[in-house]
């Protein structure tokens, strides 16, 4: 079984299609909706965690792309200017998926973007304003 997190960006005319229904039924996916920003008539975004076998994962992602849905790994949604980080640790206070943790005993910031759920709290917590996020904007 594979677990992957993706942000799906879909054009206004696809908002009304039951995409998640097909992913579950046709590709045996366990789906966890982590974040959603969907408005009728506008571009929509969904942050989903998929859990399924390798083949179904590939087929399911192909199904989405064939439908005109943009599929981006969640790690591409967040970026950190790590070279400017002072490793104060303030961002780790608000990151509940442990994408941001303090490495011990070095006390360096450990950044694992694949664990991110694009909640956006680190953007406000970083005193040096080093995070950027696509979904958030």
């Amino acid at each position: 079984m594979y677990t992957r997190r993706y942000v799906l960006t879909f054009p206004p005319d696809k908002v009304n299609e039951p995409l998640t229904f097909h992913l579950i039924k046709d590709y045996n996916m366990e789906i966890n909706i982590l974040k959603a920003d969907i408005n009728a008539g506008k571009e929509g975004k969904l942050l989903l965690e998929f859990r399924t076998g390798k083949t179904d994962m590939e087929k399911g992602l192909k199904y989405l792309k064939d439908k005109g849905i943009e599929v981006t790994p969640v790690s591409k949604q967040i970026s950190l200017r790590y070279e400017d980080c002072v490793h104060c640790g303030a961002c780790t206070a608000v990151c509940f998926t442990d994408a941001l943790t303090m490495e011990k005993p070095s006390w360096e910031l450990n950044f694992k973007p694949e664990k991110c759920i694009v909640c956006g709290l680190c953007l406000k917590a970083c005193p040096l304003n080093l995070f950027k996020m696509e979904f958030y904007n």
């Binding site: 002072v86 490793h87 104060c88 640790g89 303030a90 961002c91 780790t92 206070a93 509940f96 303090m102 070095s106 006390w107 360096e108």
Partner: peptide, 23 residues
């Protein structure tokens, strides 16, 4: 250590000052 207990609740802790740069 990363967490403290207060009123029976485990609370995540985080620093504001950099131990790495202090070292």
């Amino acid at each position: 250590s990363g967490s403290i207990h207060l009123n029976g609740k485990k609370i995540r802790t985080a620093p504001l000052s950099s131990i790495k740069i202090a070292r």
